[in-house]
Design a protein around this nucleic acid. Structure first.
Lengths: 193, 193
DNA sequence: AAGATATCCAACAGGCTGTTGACTTTTTAA
DNA sequence: TTAAAAAGTCAACAGCCTGTTGGATATCTT
């Protein structure tokens, strides 16, 4: 993606910073993690940290973006298979594949906003397919239901992660899709208005 | 609840602190709100703040607990009417009633964890009634689905709040309950295991 | 081996935090 | 009405973290 990081020093520095940060994030939320703390743990000078990252959030951003990119690759690779379970499946599979990382960045002290960003990858597909499949439900209601489902997925995935990803990722995707379709099919919402 | 706060000075101090804090919370997340800032805005000495609250989070806690208590009252008052929409309705109604406050503490920069606490008020009722209504769904799956719904509600309610609570609270409760029941009824989840 | 690059180190100003002790104002109750 | 109690003000404090800087040191690349 960027230049080739030939210099071993840089590679090492970023690596230990990253490891230390993720280790800290396992134990407490990012709001309580200081630059100083990361540097102590990784035995790196604070000035060095600042030469690579703006602050702790910038560090998290870079980690997240890296993951996001590899997820996008997977999704684009599977783009041909057009069915409703495809994207959820890709997302869950990728989370599962990078389990160690995701347990930290999406788990207990994880970043809900980032998980939401992942979920939204299915947004356009989901919403447009719902609209044609369930023309009796109003646009506004569909949007609210999307909000319900999207946030539901976030919570469900977080629980799945926190419990150690014991179920297969396809099972979680299956639960989500099955429940969603059933809900929409049987939905009998606001009558007038 | 506590003693009668006869002293007007205390009443005034807590009131302005609270107002200033909520006003700040409208614009930015609690993580970026400092004690100093609150005191400047309310023209109160910092020492005075610390004589009433431990820190900003303690202040938020007290505000939340006050709201929580009044919600509990409502729920207990309506405890007789036992139907699936009752508790969701109570919650939505109470949020609607205290709209100004809830827009801040549950909205954009609001406290998801607190909203979750509110949602969980329906936990035992919901889960046990689901179990008897849908004996074909396994316990584990029901728990995961509860997670899906509970978090979904959080997101849906936050959107509803952010959009200015234009729908009636009963409508939101109706959407939630209708979709949930439909989802459970038509759910066709993990086949074996 | 030499130049480039990365890291280290120490020091700095700036900001917020909690706490303290002395002083002033307001409230309560004798 | 007045004196004690309670609440608030004020200034100062040590402590901690933040970014930044300039120069010394170590490491890498070619």
């Amino acid at each position: 993606m960027e230049q080739k990081k030939t210099d071993r020093r840089v590679k090492y520095t970023k690596m230990v910073i990253r490891e230390s940060f993720l280790s800290l994030l396992t134990d407490k939320p990012i709001t309580q993690i200081t630059v100083k703390e990361i540097c102590q743990k990784s035995d790196i000078n604070r000035a060095t940290f600042y030469s690579h990252y703006e602050d702790v959030y910038d560090l998290l951003d870079q980690i997240e973006n890296e993951f996001y990119d590899s997820l996008m690759e997977t999704i684009n690779a599977n783009k041909s298979t057009l069915n409703s379970v495809a994207v959820p499946n890709d997302i869950l599979q990728t989370i599962y594949k990078y389990g160690d990382l995701c347990t930290v960045i999406l788990g207990k002290h994880g970043d809900k906003a980032f998980l939401r960003k992942l979920i939204n990858l299915g947004y356009i597909d989901a919403l447009s397919s719902w609209r044609s499949l369930f023309p009796n439900i109003s646009h506004d209601e569909l949007c609210l239901i999307y909000e319900l489902i999207a946030n539901g997925c976030i919570g469900l995935i977080q629980i799945w992660i926190e419990k150690g990803m014991t179920e297969h990722p396809e099972e979680i995707a299956e639960i989500i899709v099955s429940f969603t379709i059933a809900g929409l099919r049987g939905y009998n919402g606001l009558h007038d208005k």
